[in-house]
Structure formats: structure tokens, C-alpha cells
Design a binder for these strands. Sequence first.
RNA 1: GGGGAGAUACCAGAGCGGUCAAAUGGGGCAGACUGUAAAUCUGCUGCUUCGGCUACGUAGGUUCGAAUCCUACUCUCCCCA
Length: 426
Amino acid sequence: MDFSPNYNLVEELKWRGLFHQAVPGTENLLLEEMTTGYVGFDPTADSLHIGNLVPIILLVHLQRAGHKPIALVGGATGMVGDPSGKKSERQLLDSSTITHNLESQKKQLEQFLDFDKGLNSAEVVNNYDWFKNISFLDFIRDVGKHISVNYMMAKDSVKNRLEDGMSFTEFSYQLVQGYDFYHLWKEKNVKLQMGGSDQWGNIVTGTELIRRKGNGKGFSLTAPLITKSDGSKFGKSEGGNVWLDAKKTSPYQFYQFWMNTSDEDAERYIKIFTLHDKAYIDNLIQEHRNAPHMRLLQKDLSAYITKWVHGESGYNTAIAASNILFGKATSESLRNLSEDDFFSIFEGVKKHQIFEIQGVNIVEICAESGFLASKSEAKRALKENSVSVNSEKVTEDFNFSNTDLINDKYILLQRGKKNKFILIKK
RNA sequence: GGGGAGAUACCAGAGCGGUCAAAUGGGGCAGACUGUAAAUCUGCUGCUUCGGCUACGUAGGUUCGAAUCCUACUCUCCCCA
């Protein structure tokens, strides 16, 4: 019982802006004993996205503080569907999709946690492993009996759906997730569940179950919802979600997402998404305020997370691409790239094959290649002076010639700074 | 079951016989300014062989002419029983 944590987790999370609320006594628990805590992940897609980073980081901090983290992948809960924050009934995924998603997510989770750290090594568990052996009747007798419908109805996730309707399946979700906590508490001495603030209701059903059925005490801790200062939703880019999987969001796009963080948000995000200590961060914020145009915060933030998720090589590609595109990008520097470099830099940029380029008008190309929606739109864009060929602005009367092909093979089209498209000569 | 209101572009929402490819706001895109930020300002936001063509819930009708009037249908919302 002579445990002493590496740091006060609750305090640490508070200054980082990662603390929303906790059950009373959680802080003391974490100071007094090595605690096993877990976070659940929903296998809704075959990759985690940056919205999942916060719960992951909670686990990372838990482990760094000296406790034992468990990442739970929801093989069972994924079959049911969490209604939290959803306005309407969800489409159920079939079990082979769930299994596939589960495996992918498991690999991603593993890169963030330390599985070889003695007593507080991380673990990954799948709640399907214990749910597969529980029959429906057993469940409603042994678990359902302890939680009243009145209690379940009071949850926001249910209340918000009372008007529009909700299936019994989703209604029972909180019981299923609650049982996870109970099971882990009983079998693995897990005392803490963490998650985003939207999970509070589900987590508390778990502590309630531990109290009533197990006559014990479960603790909980949630992180606030990450917001953007302009009110739009965090974690989305033009193309939708920002994924951790390099195949779905290239390291370059990933890096750019963070690079585009506003100053205001960057000061908050650097605390949330990096493990830099307080002194380092305070200093960096100060430097940034003194010379905002240097974008020190954005650069540090982007570099840190990109390396964490995509490794050094992913980061280097992202930097190379960014320098080409946002540095003094000239036709010259594009042409100096080797073919391999070019394609690795523009990985993830939409491409289109073309057979003849000599003499073809820019409007035709834009519309027919699928770069812009129609000729009208292409003309509009050209009128706005927003279209470039190989980083040089062109006008409506521009016709391509074979000399525009870089390495005799490809052409970079851009609309504005951020929309890119590649033509490849076949 | 009875009564009422409505359905317009990505969204909200005006228009109520021609001047309507449709006001205004939001969103989106681009330009300027900057720092790949924020704020601000400006432009654009159906397609086109640039002649036109297709669009205002769906199908018909009246009219020289309809988003606007009439009929039917479908759907949505509200009130009463």
C-alpha cells in the first residue's frame, strides 16, 4: 500500500483542460493506490479519428501517472449502438464489419500505450468476450433487476429521444455498457472509468450497478467536449472526419489539419494533445504571442501529434509537402521534385488520367477531369483568378501544352491554396 | 374523425400573374489584407455548344404568359375530439 503516483492526475488534467467532472473521491483514490482505469471505444469505423484522441490521451496520462490503463473495444456494445448524442436511431453494423473495425482500432490503440511496464502495463480487452456467454434471460434477471426504468429514462441520451422515438435496443445500451464496468470491477479490480463528457450518463449507470449489485464503489472521470472557438465542430475537415489511418487521411492532410488551428484554439490544444510540461507550454505560448506570425504553437502542435500518429517518416513527408505548397512554391520547385517524391507528397490528392493535353483548354480540363463541378464553375473560378497550373495562376484562355507536364507525366492543378488536383498523362 | 397552416436553391426564409435563375440571412468557395490564424472588406454560389435549356413538393388545368390562380395527389406541422 505504499503507492505514490508520478503526479496528481486530476490536477494534471485540470490545468490541461482535460477535466470535466469526476465522482467525488476519485482524486484521492488516484493518489492513494495504483488504480486500474479503462476507456471504451466504439467500433463504428475501421479507424479511430481525432475525436478519439482525447479518450486515448486520458489513458496515456493515467499510465504516465503510474496507473494501469485498459482500452476496451466494444465488440458487444458495438452490436447495440450508443444513443448518446445521436438524434436518431442508428444503423446496426453487421458482426463481420464490427470484427474488422475492432481489429483495426485495436492496432491503433496499441501504438499509444505501453504494454511492457510491469504492474501498470496497458491492456486491451473486448467486451464481446464476456457478453458472448451471457444469455438474454440471465442478463435481464441479473443486471436489469438492479436498474430501474425510471433511472434509465432520466438519462439525457434517452430523454432527448423520447419525442422522436428510440428502439429498445438503444435504450438498453447504457445497461450493456454499465455492465462492462461492473464486470471489469469484479474480475479485474477496475475502479475507474473515463471518457468524454457525453459518456457521463453511461459511466454512472456502471457505478450504480457496482453499488447496487456488487455493493462496491466505482469511480469516474470525464474530459470536456473539445470545442472550436468559432463554434464549428472539432475534428472535421472539408472531407469529413480526420482519421488516424494514413490510408484514410494522409499524413500531409493530418498535419495540415492541425496546422490550420486558430491561435485561440492552439493555446488550448497544445495542452490537450501534447505531453509537453507546463513550463514548456507556458513559454511557447508566450513566444507565440510575441511573434504570432511565426506560428510556433501550430507548428509544435502539428509536429507533435503527426509524429505520434504517423511516426517520423510520416511527419517528414508532411513537412516536405507543406513547404512545397505553402513555401515559395514555384513551378521551379515542383519541377525539381522526383516523381517518387511528387507522388508521396501529393498522396491523398485526387488524381485523374488524361490522354491528350496538347492544346486543350483549361476550362475543359477542369470540368471534364472532375476537378471542378462544371464548365460554369470552372469559368467562374478562372474569373476569380483562383486557378493555378503548376503553381502559376492562369486565365480562361489558357491552353495546355506538353511542356506543362512535369517529368512528361503529370500536372498539378489548384483552386485557391487548399484545393489540389493532379492530372496524369496516360 | 373534425378544423387550420404549409411544402421555394445546401439550410433558413421572402416572393403571391409578366421587370424571377428567384429578395435577405446563414453556410460554402474564391479574391484582397495577413501569418496556411482570427476579424474585416469584395466577388461568386443551376446547366449550357452562350442561341438557349431545366428549375419553386407531384400530376394535370386556366392564361399570350404561372413560383404566383384552379383541381387532384403526396408529405409535414398545428389545433379540437
